[in-house]
Simulated scan of single mutants.
Amino acid sequence: MGPVVRRSSLRSLEVMDQLKELNKLLTAKEFQMRMEGIMLLTDHCRNNPQFVSLNIIQIFDDFTLRLQDSNKKVNQYALESVVSMIPILRDGLHPVMVSMVTVVTDNLNSKNSGIYSAAVKVLETLITHLDNVLLLQTFASRVRFTSGRAMQDITQHLSVLVTSVYPRKPQAVERHVLPILWYFLSNMIGNGVLPGRSGNVRTVVCKLAKTLHKEMGPTLLDHAASQPQHVIKNLQDLLVVSSWKAIRLSGMTCPW
């Protein structure tokens, strides 16, 4: 066995040992050991990010569980740790982005203020450092599977992503976000309540509609024309439309 092969084998064994150690700590019964596992993963991200990126799926299979840990201290610490990992790993997180966003957004309905705040920070950090086109699709796919504060927060983040993505990839917004707007406008009753979804979404839907109109202009109304009449009317009410040709937004607030 030559020296190059020997070094490669040693590195492979070292990687296996590191992965085993992470797995042992992150899946331990004692919460203190799980905290140590999170700390060790954070250290790996800082000192050897390539190791984490190359083994991201295997590592996050264990780590994602800690993002919804039954122990609130572990749960919050894991979320806070992700915030520091994201700027380092960046695109290396793409293979686990959907699963991570799913778990993080579930935390948005937590009654624990520390966990909720940490989850919000994770989403904001993702938007800052990761591909917003991929995030837009991922966030949009989560809306219908959430409720309450989580649904409101995700929709609010969608508005931010629309502003970022539409100038570069208008078709992505049309494909993934417009169906969400039609869903809201089709199902809201009264002053903005979604039946059975435990929450009033009028403020965030109003913001989403206005953001879409700001970016898309008359194209938004063109797309809306194929929707049922009550959806068109709700959109008109949101945008304070007197006609399809004259839109008076200046100085006006959402009528809800």
Results as ranks from 00 to 15, higher is better:
R34L: 00
L67T: 07
N23F: 12
Q18H: 14
P87L: 03
T42Y: 09
V5R: 15
N109A: 01
V5Y: 14
T105P: 00
R34H: 00
D91A: 11
E36A: 08
L79W: 02
L10V: 13
F51M: 06
P87N: 02
E21K: 14
M100H: 05
I56L: 05
L22E: 02
S113H: 10
R90P: 07
Q68I: 11
D17M: 15
S84N: 13
N109T: 01
T42G: 10
Q68L: 09
V4N: 09
M33T: 09
V96Q: 00
T105W: 00
K29W: 10
D106E: 11
V15T: 13
N23W: 13
D62P: 03
L67Y: 05
S84T: 14
Q68D: 09
K73F: 14
V83H: 01
R46W: 07
G114R: 06
G2H: 07
L41Y: 02
F31H: 13
V98M: 09
F31K: 14
V5I: 15
M1Q: 14
D61K: 13
S113Q: 11
R66F: 03
K29V: 12
R90Y: 08
Q32A: 09
V103R: 05
D17R: 15
S12R: 15
G2N: 10
V74F: 05
V101L: 04
N107Y: 03
K29T: 12
V83I: 08
F51S: 04
D106M: 11
M16L: 15
D106L: 11
C45Q: 07
N109K: 04
E36W: 09
S8M: 15
V82D: 08
P49M: 10
F51E: 03
